[in-house]
Design a protein around this nucleic acid. Sequence first.
DNA 1: GCCCGATCACAAAT
DNA 2: CATTTGTGATCGGG
Length: 704
Amino acid sequence: MEGGSSHNFVPPSAGFDKSRVLDVKPLRSLMPVFPAASQAPPFPCMPPFGQTPNGYSPFYPFQPQGSQTSPNLNSPSPMRTPTGPMPAPIRSYRAPVPSGALPHDFPEESNGERGSSMGGAEDDDGYFDAHLGSSSSRKKTTKASSSRKKKKKSGDGDSLTNNGSGVNFVSVMSPFQVEDGNRELVNYVLVNFDALRRRICQIEDAKESKNGIIKRADLKAGNILMTKKVRTNMRRRIGVVPGVEVGDVFYFRMEMCAVGLHAPSMAGIDYMTGKGDAEKDPVALSIVSSGGYDDDTEDSDVLIYSGQGGNNNNKDKQVADQKLERGNLALERSLNHGNEVRVIRGVRDEVNSTTKVYVYDGLYKVHESWTERGKSGCNIFKYKLVRVPGQPGAFAVWQTIRKWKDGFSSRAGLVLQDLTSGTESIPVSLVNEVDNEKALASFTYFPKLKYSKSFTLMPPSFGCNCHNACLPGDMNCSCIQKNGGSFPYTGNGILVSRKQLLHECGPTCPCSPNCKNRVSQTGVKLRLEVFKTKDRGWGLRSWDSIRAGSFICEYAGEVIDEVKLKQKGHAGEDDEYIFDTGRNYDSFKWNYEPGLLEEETSNDTNEDYNIPYRLIISAKNVGNVSRFINHSCSPNVFWQPVLYEHNNQSSLHIAFFAIRHIPPMTELTYDYGNSSSSEADNDNGPHRKNKCLCGSSKCRGYFG
DNA sequence: GCCCGATCACAAAT
DNA sequence: CATTTGTGATCGGG
């Protein structure tokens, strides 16, 4: 089997076999303990639904406050002090799930590994805030639930235009959670936003007629989340937004809107005006730099920002002088007040180039303002913002990576330019900035599954009959039928939803290799690096920002059977490179909350794995980048079983996808699961579980 | 195969 | 409720 592809892979053009590197043992996982287990007991509940163990504490108003940089213009905000457990509506259909199970269960980034090479510490706590216009947000809670009339849309797009009236959807978020967020809530909102957006894209892609097509799924998804109150940090605030971390990336303006980082859906300047008569002056809260013409500064801590206004509605450029009003006035006042302004920098996506990524670059202060004469002769306001020191690198990381890619500077700690020796179409470097270890334990780089003897897999089924490429709307395509009637990927190759089992087109399908239903077979597309972590051996991360739902890599290696697995275990051999579908994996939710899309009839929302046979892969001797992905109980990557035809059999594959947007240089992790207890108990002697060092508050303490 | 500009249909906050 | 704010996808030319 293995049809045609080389079994004993020898890297091309290698004078010596560079894929076999020196023999130093990698540490995947180990080291003593994660002590925080006692101080941070595992959440028995599923935020945002449940209560926190000690009542109601993780919310923002109760974080230490004002200790750091609060400017003096803040009147102490009246804290809402809920006395009991918060009134979190609990959806009845949701069965209790083991902790660590839900996508919004990821309160912190894997392990603060992001940007470590740039010397930035992760921004964990640092909660501080200033409150303006103390009462400004109070009254909002009751607004907007009243039904809203939506103008009729042309065409039949109405299946997706469910606004307001929210027939059968009860927001899972309490009013408090809508007002003030935390990391879990932010992740929860973002996961739902993108899942909804992808689903809308999927529905639209399948439409035959171009009539009534929704071109802006992002706006539609955003609108639904707004009206159904699946949003957080609605209370406007200066400075830190709880749950949003410096370096976080966004792919749509609506995402920043939904998590309270930047409220306006279009305008570049967010500002707030005090309500009381005392202070009518607006203050700037956040700005979005489009990354166009403002970024002529080389210093990544300085931003020259142009004011708003003066451009004639939708046409042309400057036609009038900008006025000192609204956002411009707010920035001017912020210069006087010296308050912090959140800065979001728009940058081009390296992966897609037609899309833009928004990088939250933390807090800045306005240092200067002046006016300039624009090209058309009109006055434009300019503001010089300087970054508040002590924050982890964010935009600076992007700039550094840009230089690596352009060859203007070299990657520090580089051990090997490409550990795949050209096997992948894009190099994977090996980097160590931590210690002196200069090589990996020997293994052969091979990008696929390898069957050492004839496995009996699954009886053959049939491929599709599509000729050029399978098209989303084609209900005759049997591969689409197997996927429940929907094309599993969006037009740009992003996975729409988690599935029990994903069916891709295989070699026996007559459609071209360009068919969009072959995403997981196309190899690594991201610029990855294997790097030495501080305490968990080698790990994997990406120079490119990774969009939620993006395919990352397949778990490659030698397929072994259960007997072999047991042997490995008993020999005490290191089997830390095993992937085993037979382990117990916590279920978790990645698809959107049912009910967000009314008229959604597809009950294809089951996300529990349904795997036709047990697949065990050892990547100890043979494997690809996947073997370097470490475990986390709060991962940013999940695995998806994928089935396709091969040599008259259906063979199963393990494909990794991004749970959420992953900023560059953030370590990639997935949940290794746990051996079933029966197998664990069979061993007399201590079962070889690994102490987990993921550092998440949801940490189970061990894995494997 | 890419990069640029033009075009078009839209949402939130006030 | 009208106004103020670009954005994101797509398409055609150079």
